[in-house]
Simulated assay, not measured.
Amino acid sequence: MAAAGDPCPRCGGQDRILALVNRGGGRGGAETRDCATCAGVGVISAIEAARLRAGAALREGRVAAGRLLSGSDEEWKRPLARMLGEHHPDGPRETLDPRGVDRWASGAREIPEWVGPAVARLLTDLADGLESEAAAARAVAARLAG
């Protein structure tokens, strides 16, 4: 999977915006990340390039958040899908489809607008819990130290 700053796999262009391209008709086609020129969309505007960069940055932030919330670098998409289920705008549910989270992380799908605030809320709750545990650990350490 190509990341921000990776060269285009087709032409080797280093500083080009990479776009998701489905090569291989129909369902199950091979997906690659080519630069906008190789993808056939030609030269893109500075505004579109900024939008694509912002989307990539948001995806990277959500990936980092998913790893923090799940406590795992390996398996974080399924736990994040479960955590986000209760925050769904159409009403709480047990979980979201983990494949959707995978598609957001890969850039294959746009991240819905409601996800950012929900993830921020989850991270704040995690931080609050960790601060409480840290305070409790300091209190125990102080008692043990005498």
Rank of each mutant, 00 (worst) to 15 (best):
D15G: 06
D15T: 05
D15M: 03
R16E: 15
R16S: 14
I17Y: 00
A19K: 10
A19I: 14
A19Q: 08
L20H: 11
V21C: 10
N22W: 09
N22G: 10
G24P: 05
G24K: 06
G26M: 01
G26L: 02
R27A: 14
R27D: 08
G28C: 03
G28I: 05
G28Q: 05
G29W: 13
G29H: 09
E31F: 08
T32L: 15
R33I: 00
D34H: 14
C35T: 04
C35Q: 01
C35L: 04
A36D: 12
A36N: 13
T37I: 13
T37E: 14
T37W: 15
C38G: 07
C38N: 02
A39D: 05
G40C: 04
V41F: 13
V41N: 11
V43S: 11
V43P: 00
S45P: 06
S45Q: 10
S45F: 07
S45V: 09
A46L: 09
A46C: 04
A46Q: 12
A46R: 13
E48F: 00
A49P: 05
A49I: 11
A50G: 07
A50D: 13
R51V: 09
L52T: 01
G55E: 15
G55Q: 14
A56H: 09
A57T: 09
L58Q: 15
R59F: 00
E60D: 15
E60S: 13
R62W: 11
A65T: 05
R67K: 15
R67I: 10
L69M: 04
S70H: 06
S70R: 00
D73Y: 06
D73C: 09
E74P: 01
E75I: 12
E75Q: 12
L80Q: 02
A81K: 07
A81M: 07
M83V: 02
M83P: 02
L84A: 01
G85H: 04
H88P: 02
P89A: 00
D90Q: 10
D90H: 03
P92Q: 10
P92D: 07
P92N: 04
R93F: 03
E94S: 13
T95K: 11
D97Y: 08
D97F: 03
P98V: 05
